[in-house]
Simulated scan of single mutants.
Amino acid sequence: MTVDSYLFDDETLISPQVQSCLPQNYSIRPLGSRDYDRGHLQVLGVLTDIGHHSPQDWLDQFYYMKKRNDTYFSLVIIDHASDRVVAVGTLLMERKFVHCNGKVGHIEDIAVANDQQGKKLGLRMIEALQYIGARNGCYKVILDCAVKNVPFYEKCGFVQKESQMAWYVPQAEQVAHL
């Protein structure tokens, strides 16, 4: 059996408080190299279209992110009874010139499997990512969300600030990634 490699190895970045609040037989940890088989993409599919990934495509992305383990902090919550990923989330670390070369954490891709909702796993994921941001010296942690999700994020301690804008690159102008 192949041993998991994890996106990052710093155990001090996993909140003991969050771990203690998870249901019995659940744990939170960094994304692992074997999480493709544990349903990582299926959970992300709750959010949006994930496209097609072969196992190798997924591993290539995993190892790209692992090489930048001071930027990508993806977490998963595992249900040990089924050995599957049931919740996911990522904190991206942005290094700035403002705020004396400060850091901003960007929370992305929060998703909980449909059959796992109502167990506060989304809340625990947000708390865990906030903990990582604080431990890494971020002066703020931000996220974008649908208007319908604002009340949930307010319960997590976030406040609405300004407006989000997006520009989507037209399909004809998209350049294939190298």
Rank of each mutant, 00 (worst) to 15 (best):
Q42I: 00
K66R: 05
D35H: 13
I77H: 11
R84E: 06
G45R: 04
I132C: 07
C21H: 13
C21W: 03
K67M: 03
F8S: 06
K120H: 03
F8W: 06
L121F: 08
E154T: 15
T90R: 10
L7C: 12
T71F: 04
K66S: 04
N149E: 08
R68H: 06
V86W: 10
G102P: 03
L129T: 11
A146N: 11
A166R: 06
H53T: 08
A146P: 12
W58L: 07
I142P: 01
L59C: 04
N69P: 02
F8G: 06
N101V: 01
S74D: 10
V85W: 01
R135F: 13
Y36W: 05
G32N: 07
D83T: 04
N149M: 05
G118S: 04
N69M: 04
D60L: 01
L91M: 03
K148N: 11
Q160T: 14
R34E: 14
G102W: 15
Y63S: 02
G122C: 13
H177V: 01
L91T: 10
E108K: 02
T90K: 05
L178D: 00
K148E: 05
Y72M: 03
M165K: 08
A87C: 04
D49A: 06
E11H: 03
E162R: 11
K66A: 10
V112F: 06
C145V: 12
T48K: 09
L75V: 15
S27C: 14
V3M: 13
S20P: 08
L41P: 14
Y72N: 08
A113N: 01
V85T: 10
V85S: 09
F152Y: 09
C145H: 09
K148S: 09
M93L: 09
M93W: 03
G122T: 05
V88W: 00
L59N: 08
Q171K: 11
I28S: 00
V86N: 07
F62N: 04
V86E: 02
E173L: 03
E108S: 14
Q160L: 02
D49E: 10
V85F: 00
L7D: 11
G45L: 02
D9R: 10
V147N: 14
G137D: 15
T71D: 03
Y63V: 09
S33V: 09
R34A: 06
K119R: 00
W167N: 09
M65C: 12
Y72T: 07
A128S: 12
Q174M: 14
L44K: 02
F158I: 03
E94M: 10
E11L: 02
I110R: 04
Q164M: 03
D49S: 11
Y131L: 09
M65S: 09
W167G: 11
Y139A: 11
L75F: 13
M125Q: 08
F62V: 00
D49F: 12
A128W: 14
C138Y: 07
V46D: 14
F8V: 10
